[in-house]
Amino acid sequence: MKLDPRVRLLIIILITSLAVLAKDIAYLAIVFAAAALVDIIMKLDIMGAIKRLRHFLWLILFIAFVQSLTVKGGTTLISIKSVNLLTTKGIGFAIEFVLRMGIILFAGLIAASSDGREMTDGLLKMGLPYEFAFMSAITLRFLPVFSEEFRSRMNAMAMRGIDIKKMPIGKKIKIYGYLIAPAISGCIIKSRELALAMSSRGFGAHKKRTMLRELKLTAKDWVVIVISVLLTAGYLAFMYIYGGLFSL
């Protein structure tokens, strides 16, 4: 379903706000399911995203596992002598963490589904100063640049006969530490080039800039806005009544 970028931004804000405000697993699970449903209705490639982010998903599971071991409370499920290894509270925290990250990923998928600079244009149309709107766009632009910088340095090390894959984990972490500083400095140099290219093309020439893309809210967009806001408000009221909200 093709929606105006402002509507997609609104849905992202609503979903992520609920992920922050919902207090326990049951309430979070409903938000998780709703976020997944939104992605399915919008025909977004969830499986493709899971494949692309598999390393990150493993990291989330690893953090959840560590969290389940470190948070103590509730009933002890596994213990060795007097040390409580796994408790119900620990497992609860881990599941909540996984659900929250899942909701954020579903919301991120909505943002990633935009065509070109649509989201930036949406932010501009919502009245955000263009310096800030472009800042967010450029930040995303730099993620692959950083990854490329890092990979090229890894390749340079491999060319010198250092096989990082075969190294013990401790040494590997040390090597990654050495690589991060030059990768960041490479990014800074590239960011300067990019800033010059932007300045040379009149960035900042006027307080307001015009837009090639015409953004108009259609009847479908308005229907989605009303339904999204009503559902979110209803769910917040439900959580408030039944104590599912984090006290602010």
């Binding site: 065509d115 070109g116 600079r117 766009a137 450029i138 632009r141 990019l194 290219a197 932007m198 093309r201 009149g202 960035f203 900042g204 020439a205 006027h206 307001k208 800039r209 015009t210 837009m211 090639l212 893309r213």
Partner: peptide
């Protein structure tokens, strides 16, 4: 710095309002 070629070409004239 724009995802699409058209947007890249529109960047300067948009800046010039």
């Amino acid at each position: 710095f724009s995802p699409l070629v058209t947007e890249e070409l529109a960047f300067a004239p948009e800046n010039l309002a």
